[in-house]
């Protein structure tokens, strides 16, 4: 995944079955963000792997005051990359089991 300066990681163990998973997002490189980034903590949230869209969560973070509008795309991409990795690992685990 491209280094966007925004890090997204699992906030809980992934058993490969649950539809919703807890993720944690934080800024590693403030310089890569266009807007001024106030929050220096890690933001934990739940994401439904089947139904939800990363860019929508990013927009909610902007609306909640965590990020500037101009960084919504970067945040959305960071979440998308992590979600894609989670799904890829799940598919690999399933195919290995078969």
């Amino acid at each position: 995944a491209e280094d966007t300066g925004v890090r997204v990681e699992l906030a809980e163990e992934d058993d490969g079955k649950k539809a919703s998973i807890a993720l944690k997002l934080w800024v590693e490189d403030h310089k890569k963000l266009k807007g001024k980034y106030k929050e220096s903590g890690a933001i934990e949230f739940t994401f439904d792997l089947e139904k939800e869209v990363p860019e929508v969560v990013a927009q909610e973070m902007v609306e909640s005051g965590f990020f500037h509008e101009s960084d919504a795309k970067t945040v959305g991409k960071s979440i998308r990359d992590r979600v894609a990795l989670i799904k890829w690992r799940r598919e690999r685990t399933v195919s290995a089991a078969v």
Binding site: E9, W26, E28, G41, A42, I43, E60, S64, G65
Partner: peptide, 27 residues
């Protein structure tokens, strides 16, 4: 560690806590 919560109008809860220690040292 201090945590704060923000609930978005769409209902999603965002829990803010300190960045994981190990990651800070990696930089």
């Amino acid at each position: 560690s201090a945590t704060a919560q923000v609930v978005h109008s769409a209902g999603r809860r965002f829990i803010v806590s300190p960045v994981p220690e190990a990651r800070l040292k990696e930089q």
